[in-house]
Design a protein around this nucleic acid. Structure first.
Length: 445
RNA sequence: UCCUCAAUAGCUCAAUGGCAGAGCAUGCGGCUGUUAACCGCAGGGUUGCUGGUUCGAGUCCAGCUUGAGGAGCCA
């Protein structure tokens, strides 16, 4: 009697007769032999049919099955070094097959395809083993994030998605009609998290956020997931120490649990193994000095123009890339100019032109994966900052009130899930990290 | 919003201004160890749209549409 198994567990069933319910990923006929690659959602394995063993009728049927035909295969599991798959090295000697549907003209063949074609077929592309591996890694990263925070005593608390105003200005928000009133899709849950920590101490929200930025790069999505931890009685140094533990845990957990998938994606695992605390920390001032030095050393006029920067400017992508190239770990840059950052950041003691903000830049050019800061805790200073940024004070009354009733130093940050997935998987574009990505030019399928 | 590039068979791409091609996929045949197999045969085209130059345009020019990469903005 055959046991029904999932391919993920095939190593535990060598020598046994098993049944696998799945889909035909690819097939290669070779005379009286037929090599089928079978996927079942948990992995891919090779099923081998031999004409004299299963009979002419069954063999002819199998040989004519199109890619993505659905079928139930029964056979005996054996080791075979040459057998491809995830995990590789196993195959099933087919004894019986039930075909549910014989498919013809499946559009995605095991050959090269262009980006537009693949994105038009995203609903099918997810079946391809690379995309499949990425989604498995993404799920593990999400799990690692939640586990780490829960184990550190954080309360997971949800923040609203429909919001009356912006945390950082309205130019990049999606507007929605809220019973004939203007409302916006949230681009952060941070302000609500600041209310929540005064009730619960340490909290995080983890969900989709929305940015209407007209960004058209390999690092941007209009809808992406962000985890935002926020902590009471936490200053900037606490924040950096926490972030490096957090990110290291995510990377090492994923490495341990999704090695097969990362290897399939041809990720250089030695690069990920190095992601352990502490991470290098440089101030904004030092970063500017470093960029100036890099720029002066460059002979390329185009590079010189891209790297032009003055104290007070925010970094562009080329600056971040050049800075992080010099490190094999994520890089903290702290103490940005107040004028380029959001209104709610605590000013540096004795240097009001600088604020207690810190960004974490991923290595290998993957850019900013975390933005965070110590938040302003004085109510009068906060009101002045809101006015300086010309934001509608009436929308922020409740936020200011948090500073009136038991204000404490507190800090928090946001980590972009998709950028983290892209970095850990070593992908060239963020669109592959989301099952159905929303980008500037696309919201279908 | 700006800069650069692209659009030809189902897919990936070729084609000095002069007959519209290949590989893969598909169908048929062959092969007992394939790994994006291999060998043989077959079918498959409004060259993104509109206009222009020319004896002749896939190719040159103008405009448009769609897409890609990047800048800015950001996680």
């Amino acid at each position: 009697m055959a046991t029904e198994i999932r391919i993920e567990q095939i190593a535990n069933h060598v020598g046994q007769e098993v049944t696998i319910k799945g889909w035909l990923y690819a097939s290669t006929p070779k005379g009286k032999l037929l090599f089928m690659r079978l996927r079942d959602g948990s992995g891919i394995t090779q099923a081998v049919a031999f004409r004299p063993e299963i009979g002419d009728e069954q063999f002819e049927l199998l040989k004519r099955l199109g890619q993505e035909s659905s079928l139930i295969v029964t056979g005996t599991v054996r080791n075979n070094e040459r057998a491809p798959g995830i995990p590789k090295g196993y195959e099933v000697g087919v004894t019986a097959v039930t075909v549910l549907q014989n498919v013809s003209d499946y559009p995605i063949t095991p050959k090269e395809h262009g980006v537009e074609f693949l994105m038009d077929n995203r609903h099918l592309w997810l079946r391809s083993s690379q995309q499949w591996a990425i989604m498995r890694v993404r799920a593990t990263i999400k799990r690692a994030i939640i586990d780490f925070l829960d184990n550190q005593g954080f309360l997971n608390i949800d923040t609203p998605i429909i919001t009356p105003s912006a945390a950082e200005g309205t130019s990049t928000l999606f507007e929605v009609n809220y019973f004939d009133e203007k409302a916006y899709l949230a681009q952060t849950g941070q302000l609500y998290n600041e209310a929540n920590i005064m009730a619960f101490g340490k909290v995080y929200c983890f969900g989709p956020t929305f940015r209407a930025e007209k960004s058209k790069t390999r690092r941007h999505l209009a809808e992406f997931w962000m985890v935002e931890p926020e902590m009471a009685y936490f200053d900037l140094d606490d924040l950096m120490a926490f972030e490096e533990q957090f990110v290291s845990y995510i990377v090492q957990t994923t490495l341990a649990q999704r090695r097969n998938e990362l290897e399939y994606l041809e990720r250089d695992l030695t690069v990920l193994e190095k992601i352990t605390p502490p991470f290098p920390r440089i101030s904004y001032d030092e970063a500017i000095a470093r960029i100036h030095a890099i720029r002066d050393a460059s002979d390329d006029p185009q590079q010189k123009e891209l790297l032009a920067i003055e104290w007070g400017d925010d970094f562009g992508s080329p600056h971040e890339t050049e800075l992080t190239k010099r490190f094999d770990k994520p890089l903290f840059v702290y103490g940005y100019p107040t004028q380029v950052k959001a209104f709610y950041m605590e000013p540096w003691s004795g240097r009001p032109e600088v604020c207690k903000s810190v960004d974490l830049l991923a290595p290998e050019g993957y850019g900013e994966i975390i933005g965070g800061s110590e938040r302003m805790s004085d109510p009068d200073m906060l009101i002045a900052a809101i006015q300086r940024h010309e934001l509608p004070l009436e929308h922020y009354q409740w936020y200011v009130e948090l500073r009136k009733y038991g204000s404490v130093p507190h800090s928090g940050f946001g980590l972009g899930l998709e950028r983290t997935v892209a970095w850990i998987c070593g992908l060239d574009h963020i669109r592959q990290t989301s099952p159905f990505p929303r980008t500037l030019n696309r919201m279908k399928p």
